[in-house]
């Protein structure tokens, strides 16, 4: 059996088998686009810090160390953003939501691509594009819950807006 599994693993790497999910959602019903939004903001912040570090000269070991740390965090948060959006798409959103918001599937697809683009680039524009699409997803998310949203300046050094749900008084 162990050998058979090794063989199947090899084959799966070349021609992936279909997936059958032993789906383990409890399901907790706790979903929020906030993590994806935070991650997109972090990507932008890292782009800003990379630009600053380059301006100040990053040729010595200290400077290079800084750049590597920024890039590493940018990479991680772009991946967190993708993960969070995948969870929302796969676990929260239902076909009815996609019917009511026909742009939903393309939007998710775009975010996944833009997050990869943001990994490849240090251009703050790539991060901004990612953030804007994540914000649009957040708006759709809250709409499906019947909760209205507003855009406000986020209290982060990214100096950019964020979509918030109107909850409470």
């Amino acid at each position: 059996m162990r050998f058979a599994k090794l063989v199947l693993d090899r084959v799966d790497r070349i021609v992936p088998f279909q997936r059958a999910y032993a789906h383990c959602d409890i399901p907790c019903g706790i979903y929020d686009p906030h993590m994806a939004q935070l991650a997109a903001h972090t990507v932008i912040r890292m782009d800003m810090l990379i630009a600053d570090a380059m301006k100040n000269g990053a040729d010595d070991a200290e400077g290079k160390n800084k750049i590597v740390r920024y890039v590493s965090i940018k990479e991680q948060h772009a991946e967190i953003c993708k993960h969070e959006v995948r969870v929302l798409w796969g676990d929260y959103f239902k076909p009815d939501h996609a019917k009511a918001h026909p742009e939903l599937n393309d939007l998710v697809w775009n975010i996944l691509k833009l997050a990869s683009k943001a990994k490849q680039s240090t251009d703050v524009k790539a991060g901004e594009e990612l953030l804007e699409n994540v914000e649009k997803l957040a708006e759709i998310f809250w709409k499906t819950k019947g909760i209205s949203t507003y855009r406000a300046q986020a209290p982060y050094p990214t100096d950019r807006e964020m979509v918030y749900p109107k909850v409470g008084a």
Partner: peptide, 19 residues
């Protein structure tokens, strides 16, 4: 058909990554 199984709801019979 052969499927690769993801996630944990069939533990202990089928583990994540089993076929």
């Amino acid at each position: 058909s052969i499927y690769k199984v993801k996630d944990n709801s069939m533990i202990p019979t089928i583990l994540d990554g089993d076929y």
